[in-house]
Design a binder for these strands. Sequence first.
DNA 1: CTGAAAGCGCTTACAG
DNA 2: CTGAAAGCGCTTACAG
Lengths: 328, 328
Amino acid sequence: MKQSKRAGIKDVAELAGVSNMTVSRVLNGTVKVSEEKRKAVLTAVEKLDYKPDLAARRLGGNKSYMLGLLYQDLDISYVSKFLLNALKSSRDQGFHLIPNEIDGDIEKSLSSVVDLIEITRIDGLILLPPVSDNQQIIDVLKKHQTPFVRITPDSHFDLSPYICIDDYMVGYKMTEHLINLGHKKVAHIMGNTKQGTSHLRCQGFVDALHTNHLSAPEEFIVEGTYTFDSGVEAAKKLLNLANRPSAIFASNDEMAAAVILVANNLGIAIPEQLSVAGVDDAQLAVTLSPNLTTIKQPIAQMAELAVKLLAKGADNLKMKERISTAIS
Amino acid sequence: MKQSKRAGIKDVAELAGVSNMTVSRVLNGTVKVSEEKRKAVLTAVEKLDYKPDLAARRLGGNKSYMLGLLYQDLDISYVSKFLLNALKSSRDQGFHLIPNEIDGDIEKSLSSVVDLIEITRIDGLILLPPVSDNQQIIDVLKKHQTPFVRITPDSHFDLSPYICIDDYMVGYKMTEHLINLGHKKVAHIMGNTKQGTSHLRCQGFVDALHTNHLSAPEEFIVEGTYTFDSGVEAAKKLLNLANRPSAIFASNDEMAAAVILVANNLGIAIPEQLSVAGVDDAQLAVTLSPNLTTIKQPIAQMAELAVKLLAKGADNLKMKERISTAIS
DNA sequence: CTGAAAGCGCTTACAG
DNA sequence: CTGAAAGCGCTTACAG
């Protein structure tokens, strides 16, 4: 209470009867320290309420305990929710998160990112879509060899570690959800077949049916391209079938919305005669229609995982992390 | 391009033919340096693309170039907008902003604030409402002698510097706005007379009338308490007047909404027979009714001012800063 | 106006 | 497993 100054590492070392290094090692948990000394250090730390200075740690070592978050528009609910959760996770991990906007002024944006790397020496960056696919940003990060994790990138998946939802499980769970609703005749509108995502979701769909001793006739799986128009085409095919499905699971919400439109035009009542399900993509975080079942992105989990990956250090970065999803 | 390592202050000093100190002084602009050397330094800085390391600056000196922002709920549009603007201003001022949530877990929240002060050694904090009136937080900041600026606090204005809108101008401008609309008979519903804010807005009202060679009869100024109910009472008094006003300026939106309700009940058409104006308080940032003219808080300006005040250092902190407003 | 010295509080090698 | 030394890259006094 009467301490004129905050306790430093040497105060702790003195009280514990060890050297600075032992204190440092106990706190960082990198190297083995004898139980005896470890306890003495911990006790001293507790007693003095010692907290290692962030700047000194950065300057002496090589970790800054700071992470950056690159976003484009904070006003988007997806972004602010991610930020909120990322801030919480960062705090839990003992890191600070510095949000940084990437806007139209790309020169300025790039220079602010470089400053984050060179001046602040952040330990890593999280890129939110659409920054996840900003080649200029990625190039700069690569050049500076800064660890970064991209959230749901659209392409170039091999460029860096990234986090996306588990698309197989998306397909599986949504299909299972429809089956649990009592549906036996479930159809699927695939997304663009050039994207792995589409196939994963479709596989989940097929497997969920199989697990539940059901199967879909060939004509129940229609290819789309994730656009509303392609959804309209696909829906027409499915709903004009002699033996039409009682539920349609579209690979994204745009196509699901198209299904609803077509059904309405055909006088098919939703949800009485047809259940429609979609998947919420990327920044979208709203349900397009009250009659549409959709899968929302588990933003909190993605944020937490992103922070943890970077907090653990660049070495632990795998190329891909998948997150399970919840149906709403 | 081929530099194996980033340029340090000594590299700049060497290139410029001066000492480290001269470089430091030129960059911080604190002390006079001869024009000749200053130019040499600047040239060298430019050539080497020198950027002083943040941690070293913090450790060597006493500024961290980091600010904290305390908020309670990022989902509130007022908060995310403030954050966004504060982030931009911080960047412009060469500071980093670390957002930190204050939630129900007050122990944890307080400790995170203490960490911000003791570990990160931020240079100052911005408190957003309702944190601006959180006594526990304020006590901690006072104890640690950390500079902080409160945004639109509700009370205890002498506890710290704070930023609020210029209430006199709010009253003045809104009244002027109504006069410009052609109104001659403008009434005012004051807010709680125990708060200075109410009197300032009322004075602005009176002065605006006066400047425009108008005046309000005594019964045109009614006291309210900022509540909806008090607005109803006040509106009844005003609208039942034999010579009733053609425009009513209420000191906040709650009371203005009440006026609209009462007018509707009385069969008075808005805006044909009556114009209603209010003031957007604190976190509110939406217009309550399409027929209501309201003054919005200049969030961007407040954020910028808050950052600038803290960036300039504790010495420059005045107790009160006022911001002008815009009518929408 | 300018500089040489010391120090900020940690961590990285280097020894043992 | 543990410690003494040196250094991270700046800035603060202290001199002149």
